[in-house]
């Protein structure tokens, strides 16, 4: 496992282009289609990451977070996203990035991170595992202040394929039956707005036409936006050390009106979810502390 220090964050737009080319059925010179099964290779490291207050403000506004002294719980994902894309679009990565489905995302914050703190970000892929619906690639991200681990994330990406009935996958409790706490009206251009802030220009989020080309009837909301929007509902109610796990269910087709649901009953944590008006699940989540 080699640590590769990057001088600057890669340009996510270039990586998206690389992802697009990698998805082509014909090999592109210089972007060899030779894909090995081994992704548990490199750790991409980006040091001295200062919080860009303009981007933070735009992200906060878009997700409904208040701009406070500490960054929102889901924020470090944003500066780390380009590194995650660099791993997913690496020619040695076994699957094309286009077609991978972000199925779950777990974040642990060990303490609040102040906007003034400088982060070191480390991103790597863990070994591929069987999943009931195909093969799953966990992408791990760590944020440190100096040597102190302050935040970590595991994003599970699914390559849908042969069913593995023997395989198991971690589950998040269903939000069915939770009490409706809020109604969100999501505009048609939400995906474009989020892409402009977070750098995730995956075409399925941008426009009905680009989404249709990839098999969706309309553009779909970013899963990570949905998770962030849900946690913005809980901002101020969570302690500084907290874990939150979500499972992404059905995509939200934009524009949409959806319900945020919540279960505050238990001592150990808070269950929450995002569901369609007809109660179809979009996201199930659980906060522990």
């Amino acid at each position: 496992m080699a640590e590769i220090e990057l001088g600057a964050a890669p340009n996510p737009l270039g990586l998206i282009a690389r992802a697009g080319l990698g998805a082509l059925p014909v090999p592109v010179p210089g972007l060899s289609a030779r894909r090995s099964a081994d992704v548990s290779g490199d750790v991409l490291v980006l040091e001295r990451v200062d919080t860009d207050l303009g981007t933070l403000a735009a992200f906060s506004r878009l997700c409904g977070y208040t701009l406070e002294r500490a960054v929102p719980l889901t924020w470090p994902h944003i500066p780390a996203f380009a590194l995650q894309m660099a791993i997913l679009t690496d020619p040695r990565f076994p699957f094309p990035a286009v077609g991978l489905v972000h199925i779950s995302n777990a974040i642990t914050q060990h303490r609040p991170i102040l906007t003034s703190e400088r982060l070191t970000l480390r991103v790597w892929a863990e070994p591929i595992v069987d999943h009931p619906r195909g093969r799953a690639v966990p992408i791990r991200t760590e944020a440190r202040v100096g040597d102190e681990l302050v935040w970590e994330e595991t994003a599970i990406n699914l390559r849908i394929g042969r069913r593995n009935d023997a395989a198991t996958a971690p589950e998040v409790a269903s939000s069915e039956g939770y009490a409706p706490a809020a109604r969100w009206r999501l505009p048609a251009d939400l995906g474009r707005r989020y892409a402009a802030v977070a750098g995730d220009y995956n075409p399925i989020h941008l426009h009905p036409l680009s989404a249709r080309a990839l098999g969706f009837p309309r553009a779909i909301a970013h899963g990570f936006w949905t998770k962030s929007r849900a946690l913005a509902q809980l901002q101020g109610r969570l302690p500084g050390a907290v874990g939150v796990e979500v499972a992404f269910k059905r995509p939200i087709l934009l524009p949409a009106t959806v319900r945020y649901v919540e279960s505050l009953g238990e001592d150990a944590g808070i269950g929450f979810g995002v569901r369609a008006i007809d109660n179809a699940p979009h996201l199930d989540g659980y906060v522990t502390y």
Partner: peptide, 18 residues
């Protein structure tokens, strides 16, 4: 200045929480 992108609610919430 540095608070150009901060709203009244952002600044007030931060201050109350402090």
């Amino acid at each position: 200045g540095p608070y150009a992108k901060a709203s009244n609610q952002d600044m007030l919430t931060t201050t109350l929480d402090a």
